[in-house]
């Protein structure tokens, strides 16, 4: 484990140092990452110029949901988002090069071209959360959940990316399918789930546990009843959901890797 972290940090540092050779480029891409994600908030702002509540939630509450999910998504994307380039690496033969090195191919994939400019998105989500939190006046006895939910969200999104990567061992020609789940998950969690249809909400609660990224714990933090009347206990289950999905993802990745090494394709 420490070995994996050491390898990760070493490779990430090397890529950041290489990117820092072109400071103007790095600055532009970081600012652009900030701006592009800021558009999603602009959309929320435009929506709330027309209404005071969306599916029962106020602007500050939606910003809270957006900020926590955005933070989880952006951090997971920075650290592990590159895993979704698997099919590119397989086609270019660079995945074989990773397999002949004495290091985990997963770590090598995740950190390849470590995209430091994505901190722009983390900053953007952080700013939104920082604006939303003071206005919500969350009591301290419930605020402990906020860091917990962000960490669980990071684990859930990382697991989704890993699943997306594992899927590409099968679908080398169509890596974009994974986007529907990774970026789709990022999009879904930006809004209160009460916006979506009941079946969709049940699906992202019990099948793809996106509801545990921010929705269920946020109901606890905001002290709100579940609009669908799902059990109260669910709002404390994010760590369990994150762990379960992480195990599934790890198994899928191993199966994919085994398949790759037994088919060579």
């Amino acid at each position: 484990m420490t070995d994996l972290v050491r390898t990760y940090v070493l490779l990430a540092y090397t890529w950041v140092r290489a990117a820092a050779q072109y400071p103007v480029s790095l600055a532009i891409t970081t600012v652009a990452a900030f701006l592009v994600t800021a558009l999603d908030v602009a959309a929320i702002a435009v929506i709330f110029t027309h209404t005071r509540s969306l599916a029962g939630f106020t602007l500050l509450e939606v910003m809270f949901l957006y900020g926590t999910a955005g933070l989880s998504f952006a951090i997971a994307d920075l650290l592990f988002g590159n895993v979704d380039r698997l099919s590119q690496h397989v086609r270019a033969g660079t995945f074989d090069a990773m397999l002949i090195r004495p290091a985990s191919p997963f770590v090598q994939m995740a950190v390849e071209r470590f995209a430091f400019h994505r901190v722009g998105r983390i900053a953007q989500a952080g700013v939104v959360l920082a604006i939303a939190l003071p206005g919500l006046e969350v009591p301290w006895r419930r605020a402990w959940m906020i860091p917990v939910m962000v960490v669980c969200g990071i684990v859930i999104f990382t697991a989704l990316w890993t699943l997306g990567g594992a899927l590409q061992f099968l679908l080398t020609d169509a890596p974009e399918v994974a986007n529907a789940f990774t970026y789709g998950g990022g999009q879904l969690t930006q809004y209160p789930l009460s916006v979506y249809g009941d079946d969709l909400v049940r699906g992202v609660t019990f099948i793809v546990p996106l509801a545990f990224v921010n929705w269920q714990p946020a109901l606890y933090v905001l002290g709100r009843p579940d609009p669908l009347g799902l059990p109260h206990l669910l709002r404390f289950l994010s760590p369990a959901a994150a762990l379960a999905l992480a195990c599934v993802a790890a198994l899928a990745w191993r199966a994919g890797l085994r398949r790759y090494r037994s088919t060579g394709s």
Binding site: T7, R17, A18, G93, T94, R101, P102
Partner: peptide, 26 residues
Amino acid sequence: VVFGQRTTLWWDLPLRDSFHLVRHLY
């Protein structure tokens, strides 16, 4: 291992960085 047709070096990094990484990885 050397593949003549494709490199096992890091494509976008200077050669020196590749050697530095190799030292740590190995």
